[in-house]
Computed example of a mutant assay.
Amino acid sequence: MAFTLKGVAYITGAGSGIGQFAAYALARQGVRSFALLDRNPVTSTVTELNKKYPDISVKEIRLDVADESAVNDSILQTVKEFGRIDYAVNNAGIGGTLKTTDQVDLDDFQRVLAVNTTGVWMCQRAQIRQMLKQEKPSEFERSYRGSIVNTASMYGTLAPSLNVPSTAYCTSKHAVVGLTRADAIAFAPQGIKINAICPGYVATPLIASSMNQNDVMERERMKIPLQRLANMEEIGDSIAFLHSEASSYMVGASLVVDGGFTIQ
C-alpha cells in the first residue's frame, strides 16, 4: 500500500548517515515538522530538506544522547516547538574499536554501551512519557499515539564476523533489540508502536573510507548475496515503512535489511 506520514519527527544522529537519510525518507512521505538532533551540526541535512521542501519546519538541537538531562530537555524543546512527537528515530550510535573481549578496555566498552544502549533507552523513555500524554491522531484502528524506531544492527541478531571483532558494538545492539521487544510489549496496548531496524553493511562515508584503506570490508561485501552494500536511502525508506500504517501490525519487530547476509 502507498502511505503518507503526517506529524512531527524526532531523529537522533541526524547530521549524517542513516539519521540523515531517515529524515529525507520521512520528508518524502509527507512529514513537514522535524526535530533533528546530533552532537555535530545538522547543517547539511537541514539545507537539503529546505531545498526540496520549502514548507518544512526544523528544530535543530545539539544532543549527546548519553546525557540524561539533555535528552529530557530535547523532548521538552520539541514539544514546545511542535506540540507532540509522532515519529521517533533513535539512531545515534558509535562503532567502538574492533577488538575481542580480552583486548577491550572497560572504559571503551562502557562508552559504546553508554551511547548505543543507555542513550537509546533514555531517548525512548522520554519519548514514551510524552507519547502517553498524546491522543491518537484519529480513531482508525491502525493509528498510534506515536511510533518509535530504534537503530539496531544485523549484529544485534548474530555474532560479528571474525574479520570485524566488534564485541562492544555487538553487545550494545543485541541490547537494543531486547529493549525494543520489552517496551513494545509494555506499550502496544497503550497505543505506542515500537520496532527496530537492523541494517547490514551500509555505504556510509565511514565504511566507504575503510573500504579504500584495506580489504576487510571487501571480504565482508563478498559474503552478501546481493554482492553490494546497502545505500543509505534504502535504510531510510525502511525506517519510513516502520513508521507508516503499512506496518501497523508490526510490534517489537527487528526488521533486518542486510542484502541476505544473515540468512547464510
Rank of each mutant, 00 (worst) to 15 (best):
229 L>S: 06
241 F>C: 14
78 T>G: 02
212 N>C: 12
118 T>A: 15
189 P>M: 12
243 H>N: 08
264 Q>Y: 10
34 F>R: 03
92 A>V: 01
145 R>V: 01
176 V>S: 06
95 G>L: 11
100 T>V: 13
28 R>G: 13
81 E>G: 00
198 C>W: 00
159 A>K: 02
127 Q>Y: 03
60 E>H: 10
147 S>N: 15
192 I>R: 11
78 T>M: 04
157 T>E: 09
104 V>T: 12
5 L>E: 13
219 R>Y: 10
10 Y>Q: 01
222 M>K: 15
88 A>L: 15
17 G>H: 01
179 L>K: 06
249 Y>I: 13
155 Y>C: 11
52 K>G: 08
214 N>W: 10
55 D>I: 01
149 V>M: 07
71 V>K: 00
72 N>T: 10
86 D>L: 05
240 A>R: 08
29 Q>C: 05
10 Y>C: 00
243 H>D: 01
259 G>N: 09
172 S>K: 00
31 V>F: 03
187 F>T: 08
100 T>Q: 06
120 V>D: 04
123 C>D: 03
98 L>Y: 10
46 V>H: 03
22 A>K: 00
123 C>H: 02
257 V>N: 02
186 A>P: 05
242 L>W: 12
258 D>A: 13
84 R>L: 06
169 Y>N: 01
233 E>K: 13
200 G>Q: 06
210 S>H: 11
41 P>F: 13
